[in-house]
């Protein structure tokens, strides 16, 4: 064994990029990994539901009525004899879709807003961030209910309304990232090359701020899903014939005394998803956040 030369060291350094490094750290966090696996599984099931669901979505069996879990119906049936597993699978499609699409809306607005404010600075920045402060102080939940009342309860609006109130923290995070990045040499170089501002923001600033954005995104999805469940539970969110986990829980709660499984299984699905997302988010924060990294 000879002592490593400088070129050897340089090569090992080259070997792990920031992302590989983060992946290695994430892999060591067992809870986060379990969360990731459950999440991927749920997303896969949701995507494949129309083909793999054991029964049809609207298929009823009124003679059977509500029955506890059995070989034919693994999670039992509801009062109309509909298969609960099928209901949960279709509900999960909507719950997950709301979670991810509304978060995507929030990401789009938040990143653009924060990047522009942080990069431009000055009065524009002050005005944009003051607006964020003002909206921040508003009662979100009340405003979403208001929007649902006024524009009717449709799904597209639900996505947009939730996305429109969840972008604020994203904008703040992005702005502080961009503010620290734009002092650095590579941005100066890009400016001196004469690149247009839009290109600088899109190609140089946003990719470099991805870490905190990914972490915060993972933590936004569960809060969005929770909001959807809240609204659906109150009867102000997803409407029948569509269903979601929040709606299934509210039905389950009505008849939980006689048929507790109708409350238990949709609740389990929602809680498992929220658990997975939160653990994954915490794990990613430790893995990606350079400040808290131990090595």
């Amino acid at each position: 064994m000879t002592a490593p030369t400088i070129s050897d060291l340089a090569q090992t350094e080259q070997g792990t990029s920031l992302w590989q490094d983060a992946w290695l750290r994430l892999r060591r966090n067992r809870l986060a990994l379990i969360g990731l696996i459950i999440l991927i599984l749920f997303i896969f099931i949701a995507a494949a539901t129309p083909w793999i669901a054991p029964y049809g979505y609207a298929q009823q069996n009124l003679e059977l009525g509500a029955s506890p879990p059995s070989a034919a119906h693994w999670l039992g049936t509801d009062i109309f004899g509909r298969d609960l597993l099928t209901q949960i699978m279709f509900g999960g499609r909507i719950s997950l879709a709301v979670g991810f699409i509304a978060t995507a809306v929030a990401l789009l607005i938040g990143i653009t807003w924060g990047a522009v404010a942080g990069y431009m600075g000055g009065r524009l920045d002050a005005a944009m961030m003051r607006l964020v402060d003002i909206i921040y102080a508003l009662p979100f939940m009340i405003f979403i209910i208001l929007l649902m009342v006024i524009f009717g309860r449709n799904m597209l609006l639900l996505f947009l309304a939730i996305g429109a109130v969840e972008w604020l923290t994203m904008a703040r995070i992005m702005r502080s990232q961009v503010q620290s990045l734009r002092q650095q040499e590579f941005v100066e170089a890009a400016v001196s090359l004469g690149l247009p501002t839009v290109t600088i923001i899109r190609r140089h600033l946003i990719p470099n701020a991805l870490g905190p954005i990914i972490v915060y995104t993972t933590l936004t999805v569960p809060s969005v899903m929770l909001l959807e469940a809240f609204l659906s539970f109150l009867g102000l969110g997803v409407q029948p014939p569509e269903t979601s986990w929040g709606l299934l829980i509210s039905y389950g709660a009505e008849s939980m005394e006689e048929y507790p499984w109708l409350l238990f299984f949709p609740g389990l699905a929602l809680t498992l998803t929220l658990f997975s997302l939160n653990f994954l988010g915490d794990g990613l924060r430790d893995a990606l956040d350079v400040r808290s990294a131990k090595d």
């Binding site: 569960p222 929770l226 469940a229 809240f230 539970f233 929040g246 829980i249 509210s250 389950g252 709660a253 939980m256 005394e257 507790p260 409350l263 609740g267 929602l270 809680t271 929220l274 658990f275 939160n278 653990f279």
Partner: peptide
């Protein structure tokens, strides 16, 4: 605490009642 964060009130309420 983690369970408390992940268990939404709309589920916890009915379970406590039960």
């Amino acid at each position: 605490a983690m369970i408390g964060i992940c268990m939404p009130s709309l589920l916890l309420g009915p379970i406590l009642i039960l």
